[in-house]
Every structure is written in C-alpha cells, then in structure tokens.
Design a protein around this nucleic acid. Structure first.
Lengths: 352, 352
DNA sequence: GTGAAAGCGCTAACAG
DNA sequence: CTGTTAGCGCTTTCAC
C-alpha cells in the first residue's frame, strides 16, 4: 500500500496525498483532504518512513549508542528514550559497544575504544539516523571520542567540552543534603565510602559531602573515610577499615548500593546491626535495594527522565538545528528505607 | 559520499560499483574490483542502507518489540540480539510497549493490548524492518496477538501455535533436577513456593517438580506447598504458611528470586537461619542475588543466548524464508551460593 | 565485463 | 488548490 495506491483510490495525484499526509493544509482543500484521510484510515495506510527519509534526507530516527547495554541502568534510560520517541514520531535504533566483554582489560586503551566507537557511529549513520544519543557507563570522561557530523547528545556520562549537550543528574547537591542530614543527627560519627578516584560522579558526590562538612563547621575524619571501586567486596573492605579504626561510627554514606551491601555485610559479620548500631545510606536505588535485608535507604537517580530529556534535546537539535540547553542536570531523591530510617519516623523529603 | 561519487572517481559506472559492493565477483574483473574497493576504503565509504533496502525491498533490520523494556531481563536479551546483529550486518530498532505503565490494571484487557501491539508492529513495519522479535514478559500466553505479514520470532514468552518460532529455556528439566537433589538430601522436609496459576513457566517448573517426586516415589505435602504472585511479599506469606503448618522444613524451592528473598526474610524474622536451618533455592539469578545476605543459590537463565538465538532464527527466516528450528529450548544452570550450598561442599553441576 | 536506464516510495519545486 | 515531474541512493535487467 503506497502513496500511489491511495492517490488512485482517491482519484487525485500523489502530490496531493503527500500534502495531506504531511498536513500541508493550505495546499489542499478541506474536502479532498478529508476524503484522502478517510481512505488512508480505511486501508490502514502506513507511510514508508525509509523512503520518506531517503527523499527528504532528514530522518526521524534516533541512534542510541551504548557503551554496554547490560549495565542495569541502560534499560531504564532507553525506556525513557523510546517513551519520548514514540510520543513524537521518532524511532530508535540501537547499537551496543558491549565494552565490558569486548575490551575488558583494554578499558583504558583509548585508541581501540575510539575505533570501536567510530565504526558503530558510522554504521548508525549508514542507517540514516538523524542523531545519536551516547549512553555512557558514567565514570569515564568521553571527551571528543565521538567523531561524526550528526548531532550527539551525551546521556549519563560526562564530557568537559562546553559545546557538547549532555544530560546528567545532580550528584553534588543531593550528596550535600544527605551528608548535612547525617551530620546533624550523628555528628562526628559519620563515615563515607568513596568511589574510585578517576570517577567523575564520585568526585562530585565527595565535593557535596565536603561542602556539608564545611557548612557544619566540621572536618572529615580521614579514618572514617574509606574508598572502593564500586564493587561489593571493596565496600566490605572499606567498612572494615573504618570499624577497625575504633572511632565511633553511627552512620555511613556509601557512594553506591553495591558497596553499601558489602558494608552492611561486614557490619553484620561483627554482630552489629543495621540500622540500630550503624545506619547506611547508599546511592543508585538498584532494583533489588528495596528487597535486601535491611532494605536500603538510597538515592534514586531519574534514569527514565534522563533518557526522555536526552531524546527531547536531540529532537530539538534535529528540528531546530540547535538547543538552548547544553547541560541538563536532573534532580535526585533520597528514598527512605530501613537501613537509615527518617528522623523521628516522619519521612522528610530530601531532593535536589 | 554515494555510489555515484565512487563510480566517478573510479571511472566506472554506478552499476559496476554496486556489483563490487555486493561481491558479485563474476560480474566484474578482478582489477576493476580491486580499484573500486581501494577507493571505497580511501574515502571511508558507507553505503546507505536505507536506500539499499528501499530499492531491494528487503531489509537487514530487526525490529524488537518489547512488552516492557524495564523488566530486568530485557536488556540482557537485547544485548544478545544486538550481538548477533552486529556480527551479521543487521541493525536493530526497538519499540517498547511499556505495558507496565500503560495498561496496568488493564493487563488482561486483551483488546486494548492487541491494539497497542498492532500499532507498534505497524510502526516497525513502516520502518522497514524485515522481521520482528517479540520480547514477552514471559507469563502471558500471546497466541495470535501479533498480526503482521513479516516473520516474527517469540523470545522469552510462549505461544501455543505450533507454527510460531519461539525461543525459550528449559523450565521443566532444571526444576526436576533441583527438586530431585533436594528430595535426596532432605526427603519429606522439602517445600515449594509456586508462581501464579496462569503463568506458563510456573506450571512447567511445577511439572518438573512433580516429576521428581514421582521418580522418588514420594508425594508432595500440600501443606509444604505455597503459592505466590512473583512478588516479594507473597514469598514471605507463602513461607509463613509453610512454617506455621508445623511440618519439618529443611529446604524450599522458590520459583523466583524475589519470592525467595521474601521467604528468607520470613525465616530470619523467626530467628531461624538460612542455610543452617532451612535452605533456599531461587530461580532467575537476578543481578543482585549474588550480593544479598545470604547470597542466593538460584537458576541462571541464558538470557543473552535467548536473544542471540532469536536473532539467528529471525535472520534465517529472513534469508531462507524458513527455519527448521520452530522451538528453541535452551538449558539453564543452578548457581551454587550460600542459601543452599552444594552437598559435601563440592559444587556438582546441575544443568539442563 | 560493463553500462544505461528503470524504478523502490516518497517530497517538493514548478507549472497550471 | 492540484498535478507533473525530477530525483534521494541504490539494485538489477537487459543490451552492448
């Protein structure tokens, strides 16, 4: 079923049908438009978007380039992208670099990495995507890694190029608020488990924490500051160090949920209880953090919204050639659960 | 950069360039082919796949239609699909029904459901996908719900239409083996927490369990058989019922990880220990099941492989017009962890 | 072996 | 307002 068929059935030319299809109302009389439209509906006509974009050389296709599709955040972000796409007549094609499996130890081999990306971006382009949303694994800084002449939006990752449009979330402010709350309740007895030193989000979260200390006129006790690599075991280790230091410890802000679980395990291993003896706040709100024992108080990152906003920004770029929003920063929210119950039991809202 | 440009640079016609692009070796002399190829390489030529599929009216695009992208299994399966696609020159476009948010309580309103699917499938078709992989939420039976004239492969869901090609995993056999192992070790003191009655996989898992009982010449104690709705709370409830029955209980096979966590919580609440007092085996190997306390012994479903095989089957359908494999059933494996340690400490392999 | 040319389904001048 | 027409980049038949 093509434009031509519709045209024949309606007794008009293909041009006319094309006009009504594209809502060029001023080019076609109301009655003809109505007739054509009704025929389209009757035969359930679906325009061939491929031919359309071939001819008009502009496409309503969003390319999504993921560093690794299997990181748990990816599907939520992509759902946000498809949500926007479906509500705005875009379609989305996916390309997965599968970095975790492909380069593993070469993780820092920037050249191999660049080649992978270039190939994938080229393939995407040959599929006539109008632009690309790059979905990072969020730690690495991906300055200038993507070489292409179509618009790119960076989601859940960071670039330091000012002209890049990127959408992320507010690591710093939510951390400041959480640590403020913790300091107010537990004073000196607050610990922190940091992420890896190269991680941009970890640095931002620590900056927020330090701001909270400064505002409280307090100093961070270096013995109550551990550091991990985002993995479970490293959370246990860091927690062990803090516990062994002998300083009073009533609460720990752990910069991700996995390390928080590791920390909880270490605490419980020593016969201490969470939250009665030590409270724990994590970061990420992974899907199971609600179901562990004790359930985890943690920061929910607006993943779906990140995807949605990234798609919206790309669409704007595609349609207007530019965006105002270069740096979209979305707010997070603390989700109160058992590992750190809200003060006095009333769940005050902590949100950035 | 188009075929025409390449042709001009090589001093040949577009037809010739097209021949070498498509490796029609017998239609073009070796030297011309070599010259053209080197030019293509020099200018980094990327054929326009859209124009290609428009002209040849066959596409190397796989449409993935997900019932809900945010269920945790989806991203692994899709990674399998993209893995196959990338290694075989296909691209993949995604459409998400987002059923969880869109129809919620209308979950069983088959008509609204069908309309959603039809719309999505039509959109996919208008994007010129060659075929569709339908990614189910796995419980529902989706007989004849997809109406389209392009090939469809059903992944992680079930159809009872014999002519449909579907790829799933072996619920029954792995369950039989697990329950056999449990009966051998704990005799009468084995409980089971079932899934919802309408669930096809739950029925298969129960069938495997019953087979194990039959082979052992034993009968399932109805008081040690609970039933849930896959959710955490229902696992606690079912476990409570079994514990309250007063029958000796040394191990429970819980048909998914979430309910298994609920069951563990109930057990611990009563001051009993897992695995010392009661052992637990789950099903799914969700990403966090490794990190809960105690870590969960559970069944790993070959999600990536399901995606890969589904894509391979679709590709075969697209390229040959048919497949031998109508019903691809992949094996699962029991992952030994703390909640049910391997007998005698040596991790025997239980795999279907 | 190679090339000219028709046309996939659609858009957008341009002419009427 | 409506129709004619020339392509978008590519494949493929048919003639040379």
């Amino acid at each position: 079923m093509t434009l031509k068929d519709i045209a024949a059935m309606a007794g008009v030319s293909v041009a006319t049908v094309s006009y009504v299809l594209n809502n060029k109302d001023h080019k076609v009389s109301a009655e003809v438009a109505a007739r054509v439209r009704s025929i389209m509906r009757d035969v359930n006509y679906q325009p061939n978007t491929v031919a359309k974009s071939l001819r008009s050389s502009k496409s309503r296709i969003i390319g999504v380039l993921t560093e690794d599709l299997s990181v748990w955040q990816a599907s939520y972000i992509i759902q946000g992208i498809t949500h926007y796409a479906e509500s705005s007549g875009y379609s989305v094609v996916i390309s997965d670099l599968a970095m975790k499996a492909k380069i593993q130890s070469y993780y820092d081999d920037i050249y191999q990495y660049r080649e992978l990306i270039d190939t994938a971006a080229a393939k995407l382009k040959s599929n006539q995507v109008g632009g690309i949303i790059f979905l990072g694994m969020h730690d690495r800084n991906i300055n200038g890694l993507i070489q292409t002449d179509i618009p790119v939006v960076y989601a859940y990752c960071s670039t330091s190029q000012a002209e890049d449009v990127q959408v992320g979330y507010d690591n710093r402010e939510i951390s400041r608020k959480i640590v403020s709350m913790l300091l107010e309740r537990f004073g000196e007895a607050v610990g922190i488990i940091d992420g890896p030193i190269q991680s941009a989000p970890a640095r931002l979260r620590m900056a927020g924490a330090e701001e909270a200390y400064a505002q409280a006129g307090m100093l961070m006790n270096p013995r109550l500051r551990g550091s991990g690599n985002w993995e479970y075991e490293s959370g246990s280790r860091a927690c062990k160090g803090m516990l062994d230091s002998g300083y009073p410890l009533k609460a720990i802000y752990v910069l991700n949920d996995l390390m928080a679980l590791g920390a909880i395990r270490e605490i419980q291993k020593r016969g201490l209880r969470v939250p009665e003896d030590i409270q724990i706040v994590g970061f990420d709100d992974m899907s199971l953090s609600e179901y562990v024992n004790p359930s985890l108080t943690t920061v929910r990152v607006p993943l779906e919204e990140i995807g949605y906003e990234a798609a919206a920004a790309l669409a704007e770029l595609l349609e207007n050639g530019e965006t105002q929003k270069r740096l979209i920063c979305l707010g997070c929210e603390l989700i109160w659960r058992e590992s750190c119950p809200p003060p006095e039991g009333l769940p005050i809202v902590i949100r950035s």
